[in-house]
Design a protein around this nucleic acid. Sequence first.
DNA 1: CTGAAAGCGCTTACAG
DNA 2: CTGAAAGCGCTTACAG
Lengths: 342, 342
Amino acid sequence: MATMTTIKDMAEVLQVSTSTISRALSDSPEISSKTKERVREMAKTLGYVPNHYARSLKSKTTKTIGVVVPNVIDDFFAKVLHGIEKEASKYGFTVLITFSNDSKKSEYKNLLTLINHSVDGILISFSKEIQKLGDYGNMLKIMGYGIPIVMFDRIHKGLPFDSVTIDDFAGSYRATKHLYNSGCQRIAFLSPISNTSVGRSRKEGYLSALKRKENNSLPSFCIEFGSYKKFKELFSNVLKAHRLDGILAADELSAIYSLNTLQQMGYEVPREVSVIGFTNGPMAQSANPTLSVVSQHAERVGAKSFQVLKNRLTNSRAKTKNIVIASELLLRNSTRAMYLEE
Amino acid sequence: MATMTTIKDMAEVLQVSTSTISRALSDSPEISSKTKERVREMAKTLGYVPNHYARSLKSKTTKTIGVVVPNVIDDFFAKVLHGIEKEASKYGFTVLITFSNDSKKSEYKNLLTLINHSVDGILISFSKEIQKLGDYGNMLKIMGYGIPIVMFDRIHKGLPFDSVTIDDFAGSYRATKHLYNSGCQRIAFLSPISNTSVGRSRKEGYLSALKRKENNSLPSFCIEFGSYKKFKELFSNVLKAHRLDGILAADELSAIYSLNTLQQMGYEVPREVSVIGFTNGPMAQSANPTLSVVSQHAERVGAKSFQVLKNRLTNSRAKTKNIVIASELLLRNSTRAMYLEE
DNA sequence: CTGAAAGCGCTTACAG
DNA sequence: CTGAAAGCGCTTACAG
């Protein structure tokens, strides 16, 4: 901890009370402008920085929020974080970021850490583990502290918190529809996140689109896996067995991996097989051919999440809100031109 | 801020003093095990979480460190952050992360925010702006607070802080050497970070390798740019004008972009042009052909940085340390097999 | 083994 | 316009 000049130090030097210093610093109308001037100057030359802890101990508010996020390696989360930070700093809020690494235990530990750092509120996107187990007992305990919480992306509807998500169902539905409208007949869904709320919605959107196809419904092929270890083998087997001609991937990595695998196996993309992936990340943009994606507007998700939390802070009894950010289908070169108009 | 049970609440319930509660909680040998037992149980049922702020106000130490990093979108920084967080949590430290977005002003603002959050120490990787200007006056002011600081990756040697970097010069030297040993004669260096300490070392490593080639020295082509906007145009012009046959890129994006541009222009990689990039990120791994890279072991850089800071915390007067983490040349398919042994 | 008291750095109602 | 005093939630030397 740094050696800091305190209000008391300044009071001694200027021969006034600490109350006066405190008030002058917060620009209270009770203080004469002469005094304010002197105090400010002193503060500047001494490099005074208010002690955030002492202040919040009194004021019961810290202008600090906490974030619990699965990781920062995924482009989506990295961008969300950027969005949160940018928006928060506009309002003078500091952001404490923690990573759950998709583990329920460290997620809970992080939550507690944030609470004992007296954050004013918390933004959370749940770990794979808690979403898989579906056991939100930890969150009930956390609720006992009465701290405002906003869920984003990976959420749980059973919890009475505000939420910010993208329209995963609709995004997936739209992408699937685009695939068959451009001629695909045997479309597979790839997902390493089948146990998350997000993964489930995307799967439903995919299945739903296949069922609702006007004339005849199309067969579905769900390829779900826990890790990328055996991805290539798994994917190429299904590919050959069912002569797939369209791929919808629930995340960036599986989109890229499927694209690479297809090419290595000698398939031409998009002439023989079309590919659409979720997340408009750097890999999608630099792939060859460039990848058509469902863009999630991650920064906007972050910014919006902060706004919702901020509103919750000032109005704790408002009805809970569930914000949905529209995703966008960005067509690039891994999909064919359309055969039918939507 | 959450409504929390305090030590005082528990003292009332159990009819003992706050001192006893405090001591019981910190497992002081002075307290009977019976009392400890009762207190712990009570703490558990009441969901007691110690107020970190109050504690640090007394103890003058917070077990919290701050990080100032340019961004979290670059794979390198994301991984460093993971490394820091992982290592810090081993020792019960909390990590406050802030982003400078490569701006000198917000970098300074972040530093001050961290200090008034009473972090025990700070880890920093400088913004492009401060490195370009070379004006570290802000850091001198920060030094006035006497807070331990460790620089990582983008550092400034004139400052009396510990540092952790990778061997940028050697990594670049080795990569360049590999390029000409595998037959490249006209090797260019691509850099969007020419103004950073890291960028400068990599450039020197490249130039140095070209000069020291045994028989005859090779021509150098430095392509430096501030943004990727006109990358393609700039790059393809130099490429054609000088018939380049080898590329060393100082970051992941320019490596990928150059690879893509080469292919779009009809060059075969690596038969006609070889490419090596810095950063072993997801793009490099998923590129087609897979990209040979200088891997920076980013997580290790993060973990090591935390360790150095932690040591500094306990021994403030030790000689400053400059740790260098060895980089590694990972050969994949964007470079040819060797002609000459190194 | 336990308690009363002081103090960390601030803010703010109360008094003048 | 300014000051003395109490208190936020904790820790710890001092006393018993």
